[in-house]
Amino acid sequence: MREVAYNDIVDAVKNMIMTTATNLPEDTLEYLETAYKEEKSEVSKKVIEQLLENAKIARDEKRPLCQDTGLAVFFVRVGADVKVAGGLLKDAINEGTEKGYTDGYLRASTCEPFSRANLKDTVGYNLPAIIHFDIVEGDKIEIEYAAKGGGSENVSRARVFPPAAGKEGIINFVKECISDAGGNPCPPITVGVGIGGTFEKACISSKHALFRDLGTTNEDPEMAELEEIMLEEINKLGIGAMGMGGTKTALGVHIEANPCHIASLPVSVNVQCHSSRHTHITI
């Protein structure tokens, strides 16, 4: 059984949080640059120009790309042949999160649901992190991380359709969700779509789909085709960058599909803003 020191995980998580807050990932940068070239609206073009300039300032001066530095969301795959020495993996991830958000001068955005009291002094600075665990073969720990902002999360939706709704029902649901959202989720967006599973499985899948790099497609050709159709439909809406009107409302649609109950067709749409701050490490 391989051992990984608790503190090594704390440091690795802290570093990935601080780096991600100020560095837009390569895939997102590349897609924004292409969107800038192809956008037909002058106003939207100007917005994308500002976003590219913002990414440069953030990287060069180590300033957070956005003031909404998100809730910290993790998907963690733990090998069956590795254990953490000196503490629990969950605690190490939370400790790394708190250190990353504190040392990086990032915003503490967690609060009580009703009193809205900020949890920084009680539960911890921007804690608790949202962590999804899975156990896999091997002796490695793979940690995927994204800083998830509130504006795009607020427009996300889930619904369990009857099976008869089919592909058409799902396409219409996704399109309606993005149309209603307009400029609120900070387009150009990435759209994560979870199809199948149970109600909560669809939601988690739609979130995980956003961790995939732009330019990758679903391995199933039928789903890959559906991704393309949805992207085309969304870009017909005319919403454009920050809702100013334009041809580049979404940069990509990512589907994750699962088998489902014979009675159900669950669908979840999780939206990611243009500041798609995601990364992964293997320990």
Binding site: L51, E61, R63, C66, Q67, G183
Partner: peptide, 27 residues
């Protein structure tokens, strides 16, 4: 409208900042 997600760029145009009410609300 200001450009959402351009926080680094917009923050640089702010020359001074002072909390004048409700400090307990943090951000």
């Amino acid at each position: 409208g200001a450009t959402g997600g351009a926080g680094a760029l917009l923050g640089k145009q702010i020359k001074s900042a002072k909390v004048i009410a409700y400090e307990e609300l943090g951000p």
